[in-house]
Amino acid sequence: MLLTAVNAFVDVRLAQETVSLRQNNYRLISQELDAAKARFEVGEITQTDVAIAQSRLAASRANLAAAEGTLLVGREAYKVATGAYPNDVVNLPALPEVPDTLDAAIALARASNVDLAVARHTAKIADLGVQSARAALRPTLKASASAGYDDGGDLDSTGLSVTLSQTIYSGGASASAVRLAVNGQNRAQAALRQAAVLVDQSVANNWSALKVAKAGIDAAKLQIEASQIAYNGVREEASLGSRTTLDVLNAEQDLLDAKDASLSAESRLYSGTYALLASLGMLTVDHLGLGMPTYDVSTYYDAVKNAPISQSAQGKRLDKLLKSLGK
Rank of each mutant, 00 (worst) to 15 (best):
I125F: 03
L3M: 14
A15R: 02
I229N: 11
D319R: 13
E237P: 00
A136M: 02
R193L: 06
K316C: 04
L276P: 00
L141K: 09
H287A: 13
L249P: 00
G74N: 15
A67L: 04
Q314L: 15
A307D: 15
F9C: 13
Q194N: 12
E97P: 01
A5D: 08
N7G: 06
V50N: 04
V212W: 01
A8R: 03
L141D: 13
L180W: 01
V12S: 06
K327G: 15
R179Y: 03
V118F: 05
Y300R: 04
L71D: 06
G289Y: 04
G43L: 13
G152Q: 14
I309E: 10
T70P: 01
A147C: 10
A35C: 00
A226G: 02
G153P: 12
Q166R: 08
L256Q: 06
S112L: 11
A278H: 09
T245G: 07
K327I: 05
K124D: 01
N306K: 12
A209V: 02
M1A: 14
A173S: 08
N205Y: 08
G291R: 12
V304C: 07
G233Q: 07
L249E: 01
L21I: 02
A51T: 04
G184M: 00
V98C: 05
L3D: 06
S55Q: 07
Y26H: 10
A62K: 03
A15E: 05
V98R: 05
Q311F: 07
D319L: 07
G291I: 11
A145G: 15
L116S: 03
R13E: 03
M1Q: 15
A313S: 12
N206E: 07
A104T: 03
V80E: 12
L263A: 09
A204L: 04
I224Q: 02
D127V: 01
Q23C: 04
L160Q: 15
D127E: 04
V234K: 00
A307T: 14
D150S: 09
S146G: 15
S165L: 02
G291H: 08
A104Y: 03
A209Q: 08
S176Y: 00
L71V: 09
Y270G: 05
S55E: 03
T48Q: 11
L288T: 09
R13K: 08
A303R: 11
